[in-house]
Computed example of a mutant assay.
Amino acid sequence: MTRTRAFRQVDVFTTRPTAGNPVAVVLDADDLTVEEMAAFARWTNLSETTFVQSPVDERADYRLRIFTPGGELPFAGHPTLGSAHAWLQRGGESASGSIIQECGIGLVEIKVDGHRLAFAAPPLIRSGPVDAPVLAKVAAALGISRRRIVDANWVANGPEWIGVRLTSGEEVLALRPDMAGLGDLLVGVIAPWSAAQAQHRGADYEVRAFGPGIGVPEDPVTGSLNAGLAVWLCGAGQAPASYVAAQGTALRRAGRVHVDTDVESGTIWVGGASVTVVSGTVDL
């Protein structure tokens, strides 16, 4: 039965509206069916639409269902931060001091870090080298030779991301991928900026994310991918414990993802600013 529900559209990984990655957040979504949630996600046509529900696990503050236009995801980063922002803005309070989100991969901790929210990067559920035939397919679809790929690794933490490392941020921005060639693969590409470029851009790395198989040819700013890349690269000593990644440049966005490693616990926190752009109600 249709009823009026609280709604927010939040821009994530930015302090400036329209510069990050939007997520549509439907609050009070307990009674919505999977079919109704999926239909609304297709209708918004955003990379993700979320639905805040009462938790099943008593340790959680809320349960989050995350949908792309192509189906449900067990976890995604920018929807996690945007939904937490909307939940707090509406008056949500956590007894533990941190926000505990329940989702398809289990419980995810979210903390307030100054003017930013940050989630604890979940462990990889698939890691390790990418098989040669798959990597050859990725290189061909990206329009580059296999020799230009410095390294590649599975960095799946819900979404089945393949992480690809190139030499420079310029190479990342020059990519013109063949989306049909990527097929169902989820591919994230990262490379460092020079010291001079990093100072100019306010970012140490450039990242792009491609997921045509889930209805998102290029995602503006991707929390799950950046979390997986950080677990891989920081864990292998190929990236510093803390850095800033730029994403969305090729789409005329200006997303900034902050990665910070807690030296005592080893927890990798992935965060950024969020800003509400649309606030009101939706009839579903």
Results as ranks from 00 to 15, higher is better:
residue 2 T to P: 09
residue 5 R to A: 12
residue 6 A to P: 13
residue 7 F to R: 08
residue 8 R to P: 06
residue 11 D to C: 08
residue 15 T to C: 10
residue 19 A to H: 14
residue 19 A to Y: 14
residue 24 A to M: 08
residue 30 D to W: 08
residue 31 D to N: 10
residue 34 V to I: 05
residue 36 E to S: 14
residue 39 A to Y: 06
residue 40 F to I: 12
residue 45 N to D: 13
residue 50 T to Y: 03
residue 53 Q to N: 10
residue 53 Q to K: 15
residue 56 V to Q: 14
residue 58 E to T: 04
residue 63 R to F: 14
residue 68 T to R: 15
residue 71 G to Q: 14
residue 74 P to Q: 09
residue 75 F to A: 02
residue 79 P to F: 08
residue 83 S to Y: 06
residue 85 H to A: 15
residue 88 L to E: 04
residue 89 Q to A: 13
residue 89 Q to L: 06
residue 92 G to K: 01
residue 95 A to I: 03
residue 98 S to P: 00
residue 100 I to R: 14
residue 104 G to M: 13
residue 107 L to A: 03
residue 109 E to Y: 04
residue 109 E to N: 06
residue 110 I to T: 00
residue 113 D to N: 09
residue 120 A to E: 05
residue 120 A to Y: 01
residue 124 L to F: 04
residue 128 G to T: 09
residue 128 G to L: 10
residue 131 D to N: 06
residue 132 A to H: 08
residue 132 A to T: 09
residue 134 V to G: 10
residue 135 L to W: 15
residue 138 V to N: 15
residue 144 I to E: 04
residue 146 R to H: 11
residue 146 R to E: 07
residue 149 I to T: 13
residue 151 D to C: 04
residue 156 A to F: 09
residue 157 N to R: 10
residue 176 R to D: 14
residue 183 G to Y: 11
residue 193 W to K: 02
residue 196 A to K: 05
residue 197 Q to E: 13
residue 200 H to C: 08
residue 210 F to T: 12
residue 219 D to S: 13
residue 221 V to L: 08
residue 225 L to W: 09
residue 230 A to F: 04
residue 233 L to M: 04
residue 234 C to T: 15
residue 235 G to C: 02
residue 241 A to V: 07
residue 255 G to I: 05
residue 261 T to F: 03
residue 273 A to P: 05
residue 277 V to L: 08
residue 281 T to N: 11
